[in-house]
Simulated assay, not measured.
Amino acid sequence: MAANTYAKRDGNHIRGKVFVVRDNIDTDQIIPAEYLTLVPSDPEEYRKLGSFALIGLPEELYPTRYVQDGQYSTEYPIIIAGDNFGCGSSREHAPVALGASGGCAVVAQSYARIFFRNCSATGELYPWESQQRLVEEFTTGDEGDIDFEKRTITNVTTGRKYKLNELGDVQPVIDAGGIFEYARQTGMISKK
């Protein structure tokens, strides 16, 4: 899989528009099963996966699409979510689709454990946990700024700043581009 997150991080910051979702966003909403035939290791299919990111969200609740029809990438590098983001199946395609679309980070109140692990394994997204509920503090389209050093996210639109939990051991893995690239870089496996 082609990890792209590390290329989008500017030093200690990820800055851009936010896309706000509610609680219990499952992997079927992130990337419906019908798109799981796309192979992320194929660059063209990886790109197509990005065009379908969050396409399973109900339009009546999310009239703004994460990726506009006919586009391959999103204008929202940061997703703000409530509880239990990424619940459902164990499909690695979920963080891959979000990363392929241009997503860099999710800031959620909590995650499904397998989704959090898949973010690290694939190197596609930084899965930040917020110390408070942020879905009422941001609106889709607000400008957000994640500061890795200070472990904060700022709603640049309102000027309010919020604390994030530490990424811990997953950060260097995601920085490297995923578990296999991290293992190569650290000498755990050969660099073939």
Results as ranks from 00 to 15, higher is better:
Leu125Glu: 05
Ala81Pro: 02
Asp23Tyr: 05
Val67Tyr: 05
Pro63Asn: 04
Thr158Trp: 08
Val18Asp: 00
Asp147Phe: 10
Arg9His: 02
Lys161Cys: 07
Glu149Tyr: 10
Ser120Asp: 06
Tyr126Met: 09
Ser190Arg: 13
Ser130Val: 06
Gln185Pro: 06
Asp42Leu: 08
Ile31His: 03
Phe85Lys: 00
Gly187Pro: 04
Leu54Phe: 13
Gly99Cys: 08
Ala100His: 02
Val20Leu: 11
Arg113Tyr: 02
Ala33Asn: 06
Ala94Gln: 11
Asp23Met: 10
Val96His: 01
Ile55Pro: 01
Leu164Thr: 09
Gly86Phe: 11
Glu143Asp: 14
Gly159His: 09
Glu129Thr: 13
Glu136Pro: 02
Ile30Glu: 01
Lys192Met: 04
Thr5Asp: 01
Arg15Met: 13
Phe116His: 14
Gly11Pro: 09
Gly141Ile: 10
Leu134Lys: 12
Gly88Glu: 05
Gln71Val: 03
Phe85Gly: 00
Arg91Ile: 07
Arg133Thr: 08
Arg15Asp: 12
Tyr66Gln: 07
Gly187Asp: 11
Cys104Gln: 05
Gly50Asp: 00
Val20Thr: 11
Ile179Gly: 03
Ile146Gly: 00
Lys191Asn: 13
Cys87Glu: 10
Gln171Tyr: 12
Lys161Tyr: 00
Ile31Met: 14
Pro40Met: 01
Ile146Gln: 04
Leu36Asn: 05
Ala7Cys: 00
Thr140Arg: 04
Asn12His: 14
Asp145His: 03
Val156Ile: 15
Gly187Ile: 10
Phe180Gly: 01
Ile189Ser: 08
Arg65Met: 10
Asp175Gln: 13
Leu164Tyr: 02
Gly16Met: 07
Glu60Ile: 13
Thr152Ser: 12
Tyr6Cys: 03
Gln132Ile: 13
Lys17Gly: 07
Val135His: 06
Val21Asp: 07
Ile79Lys: 08
Ile14Asp: 05
Pro77Arg: 01
Arg117His: 10
Arg151Val: 02
Glu45Leu: 06
Val135Trp: 03
Val39Lys: 14
Glu45Phe: 05
Ala183Pro: 05
Ile114Lys: 09
Ala53Thr: 01
Val170Gly: 01
Thr158Ala: 07
Thr74Lys: 03
Lys191Asp: 14
Gly70Met: 10
Pro58Glu: 05
Ala97Trp: 07
Gly168Tyr: 07
Glu34Asn: 11
Gln71Thr: 01
Val173Phe: 05
Gly99Ser: 09
Ile189Val: 15
Gln68Ala: 15
Ser73Lys: 14
Val39Glu: 11
Ile78Asn: 11
Pro63Glu: 08
Ala183Ser: 13
Glu137Asp: 03
Leu164Ile: 04
Ile31Thr: 06
Asp147Cys: 13
Tyr111Gly: 02
Thr140Tyr: 11
Asn4Cys: 05
Glu124Phe: 06
Arg47Trp: 03
Glu45Thr: 04
Arg9Lys: 14
Tyr182Asp: 00
Gly168His: 07
Phe52Leu: 02
Leu54Thr: 03
Met1Thr: 14
Met1Asn: 03
Gly168Ala: 04
Arg65Cys: 01
Ser73Gly: 15
